[in-house]
Structure formats: structure tokens, C-alpha cells
């Protein structure tokens, strides 16, 4: 059996890949990666990388909503993305749920009323997967939508956050961790969290919260609360990084035109 986080963390304060509790994996992002698409991006978080292309806003065929654009999502996980070569079909319930989650998040977040009777299609292709699937997809879609020029109030940034609940001594506090990789997702309870920036002076707002693992609740040290608190910081951190990517891209564009 290989080492695990729970048994050694309390003595070393190091995670399985050498990070501390509050460190993110290396994020690299770029936009306009696919010239043919309306908007596109490539986001890599550690060993997870996702390509996103946006089609639209364009006329929605047979679309009934006369006041808003409809956001649709299509996730395609490459067979070689995971440890085992495995084809993930369209009927996969888990993928369908992620699609709905992403669609709903952006449906509420984007200024869809500017594009009545239109549709916006977010196509996500997962090239490799090492934890943080939903978060990386949300981040990729978010900046690809900016690339496509769909107006939104702020970047929707997402992160996963988990807790290490010490097994040997229940009296010590659960330790939060940010941005889990696949090995940690298997071992620890974790949640996906996405926030949008609040109005000036107010706090960030949570737009997506998805938790599929079980966590033990206790009154004194509520692990959920701890996870949420550090997750909010994590999202802000991711957002500032994505904003920097957008700014850099903008600078390059303006310089190129000159």
C-alpha cells in the first residue's frame, strides 16, 4: 500500500505531492487557443488539463426562451485522460450531472438577457485528469466565455477544498486542504466550490457548491465551515490568476495591433 495523507500529515504537515495545506497546484491558462472557435481556452491545473471552446452566442434553433440566451454544456473526457484507458460515454450520469451544473452556473452568471433566442454552447474536452475536474472545467469555460466576448459581471473561479480528519486523535482540529489531486480526492472528503466577485465592498458570492463525499460533522470544529472558509480564499486566488491571464492577453492584443 502506498503512503496516504491521513496517517502522515499530522507529523510532517506535507501532502502527498509535497504541498502544504494552503498551496494550489501550478495553474497555467491561455485563451484564444483555437482560432476557429468563437472563444477558446486551455487551462492546466497540475496534471489536469481541459480545452474549452465556445460556440455562440448564435441563433438558437427551436429555442423557446424569448428573453434569454440558453447555455448548454458538452463535456468530453478523452479515453486516455485517466489512469485506466476508458471511454466515457455521453450517457454517463456523472458527466451529465457535471454538464447541468456548469450550464446552470453560467446561465445565472452571464448577462444572457442581451442575447434573446440565442444559444451558447460550452464544449469542454478533458485531455488529462488528476483531480479537480469540475473546478478546472468551470475555470476554462469562464475565460473561454470572456474570449468569446459574452459579457459577465466577473470571472467565475473555482477550486476544490477538502479536509484531513485525523484518525488517531479526534481532539485535534480537522485540517483543510486546497486543490486536491486525484489521490487526495480518493482519500479525503472534499467539495467543489466556485465564486463570483461581489459588488464593490461586499463579499464574494458562491455560485457553485458540489460535494459528493461524506464528511463527519462535529459541533466544535465544523469541517464544512473550515472547508468553505479556505475555499473562498482559494477561489479569489484563482480568480486573480485568471484575470492576470486575461490582462496579459489583452496587452498582447493591443500591442500587436499597434
Amino acid at each position: 500500500m502506498p503512503l496516504d495523507t491521513t496517517s502522515t500529515y499530522s507529523t510532517t504537515l506535507l501532502r502527498l505531492d509535497g504541498r502544504r495545506w494552503n498551496e494550489l497546484r501550478k495553474i497555467s491558462a491561455s485563451i484564444s487557443t483555437q482560432p476557429t472557435a468563437d472563444g477558446s481556452s486551455l487551462v492546466t491545473t497540475g496534471n489536469t488539463s481541459v480545452v474549452c471552446t465556445i460556440t455562440g452566442p448564435r441563433e438558437g434553433r427551436g429555442q423557446g426562451d424569448r428573453t434569454n440566451a440558453i447555455v448548454d454544456t458538452d463535456i468530453n473526457i478523452a479515453p486516455f485522460a485517466q489512469l485506466d484507458r476508458r471511454r466515457v460515454g455521453r450517457t454517463d450520469k456523472r458527466v451529465q450531472e457535471l454538464q447541468t451544473t456548469i450550464s446552470q452556473a453560467f446561465q445565472a452568471h452571464l448577462f444572457t438577457h442581451l442575447y434573446p433566442r440565442s444559444s451558447i454552447l460550452i464544449s469542454l474536452t478533458v485531455l488529462s485528469l488528476d483531480g479537480g475536474l469540475l473546478s478546472t472545467c468551470l475555470n476554462a469555460a469562464s475565460i473561454a466565455l470572456i474570449d468569446a466576448g459574452v459579457p459577465m459581471p466577473s470571472i467565475l473561479a473555482s477550486i476544490t477544498t477538502g479536509t484531513i480528519i485525523p484518525t488517531d486523535n479526534s481532539l485535534s482540529r480537522p485540517e483543510p486542504v486546497l486543490d486536491l489531486n486525484n489521490a487526495e480526492e480518493v482519500e479525503l472528503p472534499f467539495m467543489n466550490l466556485a465564486t463570483v466577485r461581489g459588488q464593490t465592498g461586499s463579499e464574494d458570492q458562491i455560485s457553485v457548491l458540489l460535494m459528493e463525499t461524506r464528511v463527519q460533522m462535529s459541533e466544535a470544529n465544523n469541517p464544512l465551515e473550515i472547508m468553505l472558509r479556505i475555499g473562498l480564499d482559494g477561489c479569489a486566488q484563482v480568480r486573480s490568476h485568471l484575470e492576470e491571464v486575461i490582462r496579459r492577453h489583452g496587452r498582447r492584443m493591443t500591442q500587436g495591433r499597434r
Binding site: 504541498r19 502544504r20 494552503n22 498551496e23 494550489l24 501550478k26 495553474i27 486546497l178 472558509r229 479556505i230 480564499d233 482559494g234 486566488q237 490568476h241
Partner: peptide, 9 residues
């Protein structure tokens, strides 16, 4: 709990 240690640079 605010600061995140690692800067990306």
C-alpha cells in the same frame, strides 16, 4: 488563514 503562501511566479 487568509494568506496563501505560494505565489505562482
Amino acid at each position: 488563514m487568509k494568506s496563501l503562501k505560494r505565489s505562482f511566479g
